[in-house]
Design a protein around this nucleic acid. Structure first.
Lengths: 226, 226
DNA sequence: CCCGACCGTGAACGCTATGTGAACCGAAAC
DNA sequence: GTTTCGGTTCACATAGCGTTCACGGTCGGG
């Protein structure tokens, strides 16, 4: 996920900590120039602007970032109770606000709600490993940025493996965990799916799935550093 | 101005007082039936639902009022801090929330913000995706600028899909989200509607709805990053 | 070095999910 | 009452995909 833009810089410790705890990456900026200079390739995921201390700087930053061709969105404003009366709504400077100081749970809930509302990723549930990306919502997979056309079982198998990198699974374990607990069929079925996965991963990445002779298969690097 | 709908009935005194102070007319209701019976001619101006005490009743009321042809909007939910973690977003039960007990100024600001947001075009009364346009107010659809003649269920299904581009939905999910929570019928019904939608979208755009074999259907391309 | 267990590979089989045409049926419109 | 429209269901065709099998290669232990 792309990072959130934070203001001011340095970010208030409790804000940084709250975001870290729930897994939002972030980057603090001092003004619009810094925001442009540090902007990720795919743009900011959103913004959290604290107006409680430096209201002037906060609002002018919001104004600047909202006037762009691709306005910063969503934008959460943190204000003190005393500023509630001064909120200017008609300029569309922000999408939601939150009292500062805040409860971490409320901040998290507002961010979740904002991302959901604006349609920008509810943080799409992804399984990632190196160049491999599995989007659990869209049932799509990609490697090196290119889409990967997987069948249902291939996707399920790869999802399970990539969710537990470094661990070795026997064919029986895979059959029960991926296919289903009461599956009864030949264990060689797993081999065939592994082969097709390797083929679709391409020569370059086929080694992501390793064979552990007389045990089973492992995805990714072993935990003891090969 | 039409009154706001309040829950529960009787409304908490501090809520009633806060609304009276800033001049919002309101009317408290006990459940959906009361909400329908007391509904003003031009509909409710919005809703303020307190979930802090009777969460069950509050959420079922929200659900009922949101499922109507003309969903209650905007809807502000008042919850206790302990309920923050349980907030369910995916059902679109509310537009904003506020901690309860609340500061009158914050409540006022949130209501102002909500009315501003929903009143002045920031809210899409259109659902758009590429060449497709759904006008939610007039119940009309169009593609490439040409009108699209859809039946009710077709429109509802397309609206739901186009509102969540890129996501995959199982037939069961579609049945419950589009047809209704307690719908009981064959899942193949979905197939038939999908087929008719594809036919009406035209050969050129039929691929807007993709089949994800042994999972369900997906509308549009997936979003990779965000 | 040899043997056997283990695994990769290609192809074939058969099932199941989906597409498709059409019939059915209730409700609304006339 | 009759007609029309739209939602649902059914039956059939089909292709995509999971499974199985046989063959041959490879690795490792004795």
């Amino acid at each position: 996920m792309e990072p959130l833009l934070l203001f001011p810089d340095p970010a208030p410790p409790e804000l940084a900590q709250a975001l870290d705890l729930v897994g939002y990456p972030w980057k603090a900026v001092t003004d619009e120039r810094a925001a442009t200079r540090n902007e990720p390739e795919d743009g900011w995921a959103g913004g959290v602007v604290v107006a409680a201390n430096d209201a002037e700087g906060a609002f002018s930053l919001c104004r600047a970032l909202r006037k762009r061709d691709l306005p910063l969105e969503p934008l959460l404003l943190l204000i003190s109770g005393a500023q509630l009366g001064d909120l200017e709504l008609r300029d569309d400077l922000f999408d939601d606000f939150c009292l500062y100081p805040f409860q971490p749970l409320e901040l998290e809930a507002r961010l979740k709600h904002l991302f959901w509302r604006t349609g920008r990723g509810t943080r799409p549930e992804l399984v990632e490993y190196g160049p491999l990306v599995l989007n659990l919502e869209t049932y799509q997979a990609g490697i090196d940025g290119h889409p990967l056309d997987l069948t249902y079982m291939e996707y399920e198998l790869l999802k399970f493996l990539a969710s537990h990198p470094g661990r070795v699974f026997t064919r029986e374990t895979l059959l029960s965990r991926v296919w289903g607990y009461e599956y009864y069929g030949g264990a060689r079925t797993v081999d065939v799916h592994i082969r097709r996965l390797r083929a679709k991963l391409g020569e370059e990445h086929a080694s992501l799935i390793q064979t552990v002779r007389s045990v089973g298969y492992r995805f990714g690097q072993s935990r003891w550093g090969v």
